[in-house]
Nucleic acid binder design. Structure first.
Lengths: 98, 98
DNA sequence: AATTAATATCGTAAAATTACGATGATAAAA
DNA sequence: TTTTATCATCGTAATTTTACGATATTAATT
């Protein structure tokens, strides 16, 4: 039981669900909002911004990165994150055309 | 652990996440797509349309109804479901204005 | 070379999700 | 009134998510 049945749905349905799922947590919404407002920031800024531990935030960042909603680039000893505009457009257009 | 921290985020962030979460499963995307294409249908149509059991589909319908994305109205011994256009507009505008 | 700072990952526990069959509830039909 | 059809809910098991502390990892700094 509880086994996922991805194979029973179309790639489009799975992709939409995947993107929506990544947006389906307030912490990840907060992360995206912050990234939109400051354009880009390092992980540590988010740790100070959000009431969650560093490891938890790192996990949320990974979830967003896995579906392509954000990108991370090495910046000295930090990692600079920003919204991936292409994927963001994809998410919006998918929802609008549904 | 694993305790949800809804109280640490704004109502807006929670609402966005709640809506996105409801969209975060391919079966629920399939349900919405079907509802959009036929305008309205009874639960049983979805049971025949989707490769999932009746109880599972009923659960998914409940999830969509709980966040207001769909409405159900009694139609004899069936229940007729349709997309709630207001909530749907809310979802789209929220994403577009994020 | 040792220290510090910034992230990621591991291990783990609690909670939530997902799926199904079985059972209830309700209204039409016989 | 019994049966049938439609849908919801309950109980349950497997899976996934969420959160944290502890522990790597890596690069700048001292």
């Amino acid at each position: 039981m509880g086994t996922s049945k991805k194979n029973l749905f179309t790639p489009e349905q799975n992709r939409i669900a995947e993107l929506a799922k990544a947006l389906g947590h307030p912490a990840r919404i907060a992360i995206l909002q912050h990234l939109f407002s400051v354009n880009a920031c390092i992980c540590n800024d988010l740790v100070e911004e959000l009431p969650l531990s560093q490891s938890t935030i790192s996990q949320h960042l990974k979830a967003l990165k896995n579906v392509g909603l954000i990108q991370g680039s090495i910046e000295g000893k930090s990692i600079c994150y920003c919204v991936d505009q292409d994927t963001w457009k994809e998410a919006k257009s998918i929802l609008n055309s549904l």
